[in-house]
Structure formats: structure tokens, C-alpha cells
Design a binder for these strands. Structure first.
Ligand code: FES
Ligand code: FES
Lengths: 144, 144
DNA sequence: ATTATAAAAGATAAAAAGGTCTTTAAATAA
DNA sequence: TTATTTAAAGACCTTTTTATCTTTTATAAT
């Protein structure tokens, strides 16, 4: 459902939420290492997120990526929207031209509630909230 | 979640279930036309399904694709398994190395029930049963 | 000022997915 | 038996995704 790039993006942003501050910026190298992602590829993705103001960065020594309060208040769906777009939430599981309850495919009744649930979960929660749940140990984002 | 090829495959097989018999074989041309799929590409997919005995075919005049009783009793998951494999049902939505309730990602509690539901729906129902629901008008597979 | 550091930019490339085209083989109808 | 029809096979092409490498730019520490 989500592209590889998008998965990398989400986990990276949460990692930054958990581990960086404006005084402790983190390089793409560390993120890639800790979350087991291809470094150069991740750098590109973070670059795009920066361009779209979903994360922040500065160059040079002690530079790197970090999240401002504004960045932290974005929803995870903002990340998805930025990297993949929102098409995935509108398409039919079996490839019908449109996904709708008036002309449902054979699995629509299962798929639609799921799409709604996941959409709600991703749009109603900020990066901070996702990060907090990781901190608490409720959920996980790394691979160890 | 499913590849394009797999979506084509599922809808085609259901179309064959609804419209073909051993005495009324249907060419890839008709299926492609009726379900709005690229004909040559679909031919390749049907070819593979034939090789794996999920559908049947004969060459020559009055030849084409059709389903035997045995074919009709396959589950839709058999199609998915043949075309895409079953990986999609095991991977983590956010890209963690493993998807498990013991180390869940932030959306696991939503994704896992969905994966189970859809897996059950696809594995517990035969092609015939899917076709019957279409016949009844409960669900749809074409695009008109 | 100089140097070291890290992101930005951009060119390049490998792999996978999606799709087309041509030739060959099998079956049937005439 | 010949012509016709349709799937099978296989070579080829395009686009998207995933990824790497090199050069440039900004920044901060010295
Ligand atoms: S119509 Fe197929 S998922 Fe909604
Ligand atoms: S751990 Fe992410 S979907 Fe199960």
C-alpha cells in the first residue's frame, strides 16, 4: 500500500522526533544506520521532506535534520501525502475504476472500513503522538 | 497491496467463471475488451494461470480460456498466490523487518485484523462463490 | 580566512513492474 | 490437406521505483 520511500520517511521522521532537537541535529547517516535504510536514498527522501517543510535541516558541522514544534504537529498522513500522495486511499482493492459502496467489488465491505480506520489513525495523530507511543514502548519503529 | 497483474488475474478468472464453459471458450481478446485491460499483457497473465492449472485453455478455432469444475473450486487466494505470492500478507505496513503482535508498529493493531479478514475472505471462498455473488448483483467486477 | 562537515543538487544506474510485438505451435473447420 | 484461428513462447520496450555517486553550497568551528 505504501511505497518503500514512504515507509522510510515515516519511520525516519518518528526517529527524529524521538532523538533529535534543534540543539542535537541528526545526519541522514545516523538515521539510515539506526533504522537500516540505504543512506543515499534516505538522504534524497529527507531532502524532499525538508523542501516541503515537513522536517527541518541545516548544513555544515553540527548540522543535520531535526523537527521544529511545527514539524512535530504535522500528522503522519502529511508525510504519506507528501511522499506517495493519497491515491492509495481511494483505489479499489481489485482494480475497479472507482471504489464505491454503490458498486462494490467482492472485498469492498472489508477494505473500505480498513481504509477509513487507517486514514483516521494517520490523520488524527501528530508525529508527537506517534513518538510518545514509541517512547512508552507501546509500539516500535526500529528493527533490532 | 496487490499488483496490477494480480488484479487483472482475479477479475478475469471471475469473468471466465461467469461467461465461459467448456463449450463456450473465451479468448483473451474478449476478456480484455470487456474488463478494460491491455490485451497482450492479459494474455501473458492468463498464460501463466494456465501453466499453473488455475484456468484451462485450448488453441485453435473455437479455442480460448475456460474453467473446469476443478478450476472453479480453487480459492481466489490461489490466484493471488500464483501471481503475487503471499508476501503481502506477512509484511509490516510501515516496513518493520517482521510484522508481529509482540513488536507491533504504530498501525499494527489496525492492519493485522484487516490482513486476517481479507485473507480469510480470499481463502474461504471459491471462484464459484465469488461468481455467484456477482451474478446476484451483490458485487461487481466490470467497469461499465 | 581556512578547514571540516553535512545537506542540496543533480546525474546516473540497476531492478521491478507494466506492457507490446513477432514468431511458433496446436487445433479446428472447410 | 490447407487455411484459419487462437494460445504459447519469447524477444523487446517503457515507466516507475529504488538506489548510488559526484559535485556544489551552506555553516560552524578553528
Ligand atoms: S470497490 Fe473494490 S475496494 Fe471498494
Ligand atoms: S508490525 Fe507493522 S503491520 Fe504488523
Amino acid at each position: 500500500m505504501l511505497s518503500n520511500s514512504c515507509k522510510y520517511a515515516i519511520r525516519s521522521v518518528i526517529y527524529l522526533a524521538l532523538n533529535s532537537t534543534v540543539n542535537k541535529k541528526i545526519g541522514s547517516k545516523e538515521v539510515a544506520l539506526k533504522l537500516n535504510m540505504p543512506q543515499a536514498f534516505l538522504a534524497k527522501i529527507l531532502q524532499e521532506l525538508t523542501r516541503k517543510h515537513l522536517i527541518s535541516s541545516t548544513k555544515g558541522p553540527k548540522g543535520g535534520f531535526f523537527l521544529t514544534d511545527e514539524n512535530l504537529n504535522n500528522s503522519v498522513l502529511d508525510i504519506v501525502s507528501c511522499v506517495d500522495g493519497l491515491d492509495a486511499f481511494n483505489v479499489c482493492f481489485l482494480g475497479l475504476r472507482t471504489c464505491s459502496s454503490s458498486k462494490p467489488c467482492s472485498v469492498h465491505h472489508i477494505v473500505e472500513p480498513f481504509k477509513n480506520d487507517i486514514f483516521t489513525q494517520l490523520s488524527n495523530n501528530t508525529i508527537t503522538q506517534f513518538a510518545n507511543d514509541i517512547r512508552k514502548g507501546t509500539y516500535f519503529i526500529s528493527l533490532d
